[in-house]
Design a protein around this nucleic acid. Sequence first.
RNA 1: GGAGAGGUGGCAGAGUGGUCGAAUGUACCUGACUCGAAAUCAGGCGUGCGGUACUCCCGCACCGAGGGUUCGAAUCCCUCCCUCUCCGCCA
Length: 456
Amino acid sequence: MLDIQILRNDLAGVAARLATRGFVLDTTKFEQLEGERKVIQTRTQELQAKRNSASKQIGIAKSKGEDVSAIMAEVANLGDELKQAEVQLGEVQIALQTMLEVLPNMPNESVPVGKSEADNVEVRKVGSVPKFDFAVKDHVSLGEGLGGLDFETAAKISGARFSLLKGGLARLHRALAQFMLDTHIDQHGYTETYVPYIVNSASMRGTGQLPKFEQDLFQVSFGGTSNKAAMVNVYADKFLGDGLVANDANIKVDVENWYLIPTAEVPVTNMVRDEIVPLEKLPMKFVAHTPCFRSEAGSAGRDTRGMIRQHQFDKVELVQMVHPDESYVALEQLLGHAETILQKLGLHYRVVKLCTGDIGFSAAMTYDIEVWLPAQNTYREISSCSNFEAFQARRMQARFRNAQGKPELLHTLNGSGLAVGRTLVAVLENYQQADGSVVIPEVLRPYMGGLEKLAG
RNA sequence: GGAGAGGUGGCAGAGUGGUCGAAUGUACCUGACUCGAAAUCAGGCGUGCGGUACUCCCGCACCGAGGGUUCGAAUCCCUCCCUCUCCGCCA
């Protein structure tokens, strides 16, 4: 969420910066709502002050045994007026909040301006494109040849966009995750975490998946029919008053739901939601290995072959909560931590800085790491490392106590370190041999019982 | 699933309709005493929002969450969430 103060003070500036990422800010609507808010809030608070002082006087008078009918008469008509003002205030505040919650973050000044993926800037290439003196196979053919990759059975069990691993491939998948975790814990100073895979809507709201991207998520029902929260816990009730119902067309109602995490970023980052952490606890660095669940609603027909784009995949996620002054240094470090994994695995990759038109909703700056896939003859995203500045922290009220002792929003970052499924794909394709076998990278062999090669 | 107890400021813990944003203790900060420290004494010490006003002023809101009753709610009523204890079931 953006700081409403910045919108008040420099609306045109915000609009200009959001425009670089292709977002049109409705400044007229904001100014109108903000104007209304100011009038209504001032009036409401005046009425509340009046009620408070009158009530206090009644209390004092009664304790002295004096007659209170005169003061009572004075506030007799206050009730209705106040209630009406409070309802109006609630409505305008919800409208403002609803507008704010769907505004994307402002890109950092140094993010290259561009419209799409095509305008992203390559930062560096590490390693070189591997040469093969035979016709390369893709990971699907390799995996099926090795007898460990079975999409048909996965489809029978679940449906499209699921995969099933067996034997050496399943173990290689596990080895990759273990190797990544161990590296980040032992060499990069991250604290290992095990977190819930089902989260509430407040957590999704905190990191920015809600309210705008609900269609990308899997929602979880409770006990088969209604989930417990659908028993309607409507936070807007206070403002809606008696006359309005929850599904009133103009008012967004927040019903408490459960969702499967689309990334460990959600549960891990939300650890600090509604917290004020001591200054000396920063930076906080956490790593988690979790499955991730995505509906892929908007990508029908894309990457349908293989395990590149699945409803369920594993990812090792790096998350940091840092002092605002440190977040860009931390981003470079976090990126380096992710790159280390690829380097140790001996995989060729490049780092790309996303342009304003391609960065995600919550991010102020993002680097993607793209690994070379020989069968596709191209680079594919295997990690995305972002600095969210205070965007998520403001939604979460995640703060630290600064040197002056005052609560201040901290900065959050995260990055894949790495996507396990795609790393498996990269290892299979890059380490394939002419006979269809796959050499196991040396760093993984300790996790594979010393095995050097997967062969059918 | 059954029965019971409870959710108040960093922590502990009072407060069952009225000058309560909230006693007291403790932790923490400042000052005094001291060569210094401890002890002691004095003072300070929640968060968010608004008023063109970050550290000065004023107001509003917040005692798990959301509703309700009332001139007035931490306190009474309703719903939900969470925690703890015992029993049952279960990996």
